[in-house]
Design a protein around this nucleic acid. Sequence first.
DNA 1: CCGCATCCGGGGCGATACTG
DNA 2: CAGTATCGCCCCGGATGCGG
Lengths: 215, 215
Amino acid sequence: MRSYHQYCSVAKALDVVGDRWTLLIIRELALRGACRYTDLRDGLPGIATNLLAERLRELEAAGVLMRRDAPPPVATALIELTDRGRALVPIVHDLGMWGLQYMVDGPAPDDSFRCHWLTFPAELFLTDGAPDGPPASLEMRVDDEAMAVRASEGKVAISPGPAEHPDAVLAGAPAPLLGLISGHLDLDAAVAKGLHFEGSRETVERLMPRRAPVA
Amino acid sequence: MRSYHQYCSVAKALDVVGDRWTLLIIRELALRGACRYTDLRDGLPGIATNLLAERLRELEAAGVLMRRDAPPPVATALIELTDRGRALVPIVHDLGMWGLQYMVDGPAPDDSFRCHWLTFPAELFLTDGAPDGPPASLEMRVDDEAMAVRASEGKVAISPGPAEHPDAVLAGAPAPLLGLISGHLDLDAAVAKGLHFEGSRETVERLMPRRAPVA
DNA sequence: CCGCATCCGGGGCGATACTG
DNA sequence: CAGTATCGCCCCGGATGCGG
């Protein structure tokens, strides 16, 4: 990107991360951790390959991310955030919280979706409503991608990939799933909107928020 | 900007504020409060007038800012952030704190500067080192623009425009001024780098940080 | 298959000129 | 003061190719 040529810290930050796609690359690295070029590409539907390569070069030069050789079994290099890049994660998170208000109408017809994009909203909204209960595991699934939510001793942990022995599974379209997570819909309403539900209703109700804090 | 077409809150946020110049417009409205088109234009050196007009239209349509008729004596309309837009201010602030690390080398030869751009760094770094002392007033000046810093009862307030009866005045180039504010330079070092200083040294040392918290 | 580089068409952007 | 109009350029998007 052309520099703004302003001696202002906000402008200098945007000189580095203000380019198109740049903050979404940070998002992917924040949600996935160290990953391959191809993983990034899959998490950024719509990006041109040359643009991704160019952005990665720029961000590496700016000290925001680094490449590291993968451990022996793998032949490829891994890309991950540096300390400087990790300092951006809370900002990307907050930006995502601000953007939630533009999602309540549901996805546009040609919107793509990846399950791990729900991580930030899930971290914000999900709480362990029964901190004294036994550990519980929930799987959320859209298309072929899954995300695991584990509640244990009052803590909620969200991780990409399928859950090991889920007590409950939620699957279906993104919109009712997000509605449930954010408290806009309860489980019955989400099911009525097409969400598929299996397993322990108790587990779902333990994790999902009771009220809707989004404006 | 073309939408990213991703049903992700970060992408949706960037669909609204990810365009070039957009977050800098938010910065200006955050630092100035309600202001005129021309004020924005002056605070955004380098922007094309058609782009500013177009961005303002888009941001108004997105509910981020609004236009309001000025009180009778003035003939022009004022532009200000809505609640939704004000929710972006902490994000812009944090982005600015992150961008500080790219300013330590000083401005590029063709960088422009406005004094009120120091507001975010000043809010972060300046503290009242003598909360029991009498109110103190400091003016910082670069070129023709000034910024006032008032310390009173342990609180520090920063406002655009000249100070009324400043106990001390700092004037000169942006870089030594920022170095002083951020704690990279003490007053003598800043003066050695060309900063002009007048008035009460005690007032300056009361407000400026003792150590450098920037990496 | 992974990680790009290259090419090309379209549109966002930058700069200037002009207007109510 | 507050924009609109115009034009050229370069960034971006999409497709293809290619070496490891």
